[in-house]
């Protein structure tokens, strides 16, 4: 068992290794016996567990008061008209998929497009250029670009 696998199993089964399924438990105990970092990881998780559990119990009263205000506001105000139009997309699903999707596919697509652009720009095999145009391309363009234009006599 690698440390990475051990970390995943901590999430799945909790920090009490003795309660894990037998095969995972034996492998985890073997890892803990030899790997100091794995023991540190387990100690860190054991310390984190009660803090997360404690925060979960936080402020139930602090949530009740605003919740009561919300239900009162909804009970007293006239409710809007219900929408009976059938949606083209199931919007909440679509939105959450868009908002919370991992960033890497977008980054990979962008990198791919950049690479494709570079390949197209730097390779003449992808773009067919006729002999006449090719001759034009191979002429010294610097003269065209940088040669100063004739200055009219009237200017001086």
């Amino acid at each position: 068992m690698t440390r990475e696998e051990f970390e995943h199993l901590l999430i799945r089964h909790g920090t009490d290794v003795a309660l894990w399924p037998p095969a995972s438990r034996i492998a985890a105990e073997a890892l803990l016996a030899t790997d100091v970092a794995a023991r540190g990881l387990l100690a860190g998780e054991i310390a984190l567990e009660p803090r997360l559990a404690g925060a979960a119990r936080l402020a139930s009263e602090a949530d009740m008061r605003p919740a009561r205000r919300v239900t009162l506001a909804l009970a007293n105000a006239p409710l809007p008209r219900q929408s009976r139009r059938h949606p083209v997309l199931w919007l909440p699903d679509w939105l959450i998929a868009l908002d919370l999707r991992p960033a890497w596919p977008s980054i990979a697509a962008l990198a791919g497009m950049a690479l494709l652009g570079f390949m197209v720009g730097s390779s003449d095999t992808l773009v067919s250029i006729g002999p006449a145009a090719r001759a034009g391309v191979t002429t010294d363009v610097s003269a065209v670009v940088f040669e100063p234009g004739p200055i009219g006599e009237g200017v001086l």
Binding site: V70, A73, L74, L79, P80, R81, Q82, S83, R85
Partner: peptide
């Protein structure tokens, strides 16, 4: 409040 109102509006769908 907005989430609950959305539930009301979208309930038929």
């Amino acid at each position: 409040q907005e989430a609950l109102l959305r539930v009301w509006r979208a309930a038929p769908r």
